[in-house]
Computed example of a mutant assay.
Amino acid sequence: MTVKKVYSVDTSALLDGLERYYPQVAFPALWDKVDGLVAEGRFFVSEEVWEEARVHDAATKLWLEGHPKDSIVVPTDVSIAAEVQEILGAYPKLVANMKGRNRADAFVIAVARKIGGVVVTGEGSDGNENRPKIPFICINSQIECIRFIDIIRLEGWKF
């Protein structure tokens, strides 16, 4: 039996999917499949991503708010907070000089750790110790990290 993957999704991946590359109006079948992942309990965002993503574009806000919050959001509880603290302890520059941007990054990784999931991000893999990005931290933490398009491939969806 194949183990089905569970996804912790970053704001940048939602923006890639809903606004940049695969808008729901043009790719309704894709978003029906993503909705299926939500219904199966396999597609999650952190509370911080929920808040961050809803301020960008109407498409992202509408899609998120089209789901019961408790079906898609992993709340920031003590275990998530402890994971975030550990991540920021190891990578303090993750939040340095970001002027409020990317505040959800550590939470995306913490949720993936908690649920045993895969991180989905739109960030590039050009991060380093001085400017850590989600993929860099995932590689160093041995957490699978993919882009939105990779969900389609991993799930074997055909359109």
Rank of each mutant, 00 (worst) to 15 (best):
P28F: 12
V120P: 02
Y7W: 06
R153A: 15
A53I: 10
P135V: 06
T76C: 11
K61L: 05
I115F: 13
Q142C: 06
G122Q: 05
K133G: 13
A59H: 10
L88C: 15
V34Q: 02
K61I: 06
L30S: 07
L94R: 06
V84E: 15
D57E: 13
V108T: 06
I151Q: 08
F27R: 10
S71M: 11
V34L: 04
F107L: 07
A112C: 05
S141K: 14
S8Q: 02
M1R: 08
D150N: 14
K93W: 06
G127C: 07
S141E: 15
C145P: 01
V9F: 00
S12Y: 05
V3C: 06
F148S: 09
P92K: 09
R131K: 15
D16L: 00
R20Y: 12
N128T: 08
S79M: 12
A53Y: 00
A96W: 09
V111H: 00
D70V: 03
E144H: 09
P28N: 08
A58Y: 11
A13H: 04
G117Q: 08
K4I: 06
L62Y: 15
D126V: 10
E65M: 07
N97Y: 09
D150E: 08
E86D: 14
V55W: 11
V78D: 15
E86W: 09
I146M: 07
I151R: 10
D105V: 02
T121E: 02
V55F: 07
I109C: 04
H67E: 03
G89S: 14
D150P: 04
W63F: 03
N130G: 14
R147E: 09
V120F: 05
